[in-house]
Design a protein around this nucleic acid. Structure first.
Lengths: 106, 106
DNA sequence: CGGGTTCATCGTTATTCAGCGATAAAAGAT
DNA sequence: ATCTTTTATCGCTGAATAACGATGAACCCG
């Protein structure tokens, strides 16, 4: 709805700027929504649980993921709305960069 | 042509994960191709020349920008091919995340 | 040759990041 | 009430980032 501005875009880009976090997003996408907790993610990643928790926090802070507390576990799922916003912002960015106007006529 | 893999995508994302670098790309896009040098960029940015040079280097290493030495100046321009590759990789990533298959039937 | 530009790089400082183990809190199970 | 599971957070270490000024190399122009 409201377009993301540069700081938002940069924040999301930075959050996506680590292969482990890309993997975490894919892992979350492959699970039933709201049924994937930190240990589930950790078992797919050969990293310490605390490290995975930190990465998830980065995704949380970037707004790409949301938390659903379920008893003793915290389940995570993708925020499709934010992903869509970011996709729109990306195409806007790319076209803005590529659709160079007639720069010769300045 | 060949799809970017995760490390490439993450590298580009990290390179784009700073507002100043987004601005640099826009500045380069607004200039005649191959006619924008480091000081030109610096004059639009209120940052030290060395800092701008560093940011440009990040974009160079990410393959988003290319250098054209012209006498005593180094001119920079966007690499449209890489931007296109990255755009394709992004949409592939987003659809891969959003087009969740029927996860209930596992 | 000598002076002026342009620029990447070096050295420094402060901040952030990535990874780990350990720990404590919260909630469920016995 | 006690034990177990899950998880976020703390403390730590090493590496990377961001910013700057200073410097030297490379190139043009007198």
């Amino acid at each position: 709805m409201n377009p993301m501005h540069d700081d938002d875009i940069a924040n999301v880009m930075r959050a996506l700027g680590h292969p482990v976090r890309l993997n975490i997003l894919r892992i979350l996408a492959a699970q039933r929504a709201g049924d994937c907790c930190c240990t589930d993610v950790t078992q797919n990643l050969s990293l310490a649980q605390s490290t995975v928790s930190q990465h998830i926090k980065v995704l949380l802070d970037a707004g790409l993921v949301e938390r659903h507390p379920k008893g003793t576990r915290n389940c995570y799922s993708l925020r499709a709305d934010r992903l869509a916003d970011f996709g729109i912002a990306c195409t806007g960015l790319f076209t803005g960069l590529t659709d160079h106007p007639v720069k010769e006529l300045a």
